[in-house]
Amino acid sequence: MSRIYKFLDDRLNLSPLLKEIADHQVPDHANPLKTPTALIYCFGGICLFILLLQILTGVFLMLYYVPSPDNAYAGVNYIQNELAFGGLVRGIHRVGASAAVVMVFLHMMRVVLTGSYKNPRELNWIVGIVLLLTVMGFCFTGYLLPWDQKAYWATTVGVNMVESIPLVGNFLAAALRGGSEVGMLTLVRFYVVHVMFLPALLVIFLAAHFFMVRRQGISRPL
């Protein structure tokens, strides 16, 4: 292990980089080993962990999933009922989505409780809101993908709500559906948004989030 590291370090000069990432002090008020209540400062890290879990399980689900009305249901049915551990992986992805919502919510509560959105962290708060909306977007688009009755009709209701927005509602709803009814085009675009657009958005804004957290340090109580 250390020899591999030395090999790489000699050639790529990794140490300064790793130091920058890992070698810093966690202040006592945010350190659960010193202050047990500081566990609330772990919520952000747990969010990250769940999102990684979602990516991993999601990639496995993609192996058997084809986004067309005929194949989507068959694929999920196969994953759920025949594939070894398929039901478990799908279950983790589904429960993980709930866990992500809960943890992001709790993390946000912690930031409000400790007043951490204040100067100079306003920008990171706004980045956080983008992350929240991204997570909600994952939930909304993912719900359609199994293409069962619940998926289909819940999405129909959801998109119909968009229709009631003044002026642009009809246009937005048609753009979401790719037509006048939820159908093949809707499935394909929800799928693409779920596995390409939102992950890209997530990675970009997570990078910004973590860059700012490291740059500004964790807020301290005043």
Binding site: R94, V95, Y143, Q149, W153, V157, E181
Partner: peptide, 29 residues
Amino acid sequence: ATVLAAYVWQVPLEEMADPGDTTYVPRPE
């Protein structure tokens, strides 16, 4: 906790979507 919940709670998969069945009342997550 997540794995346990996923194992205990069999994630539902209902009948395949039927765009003609307008009597279905969906529930959101």
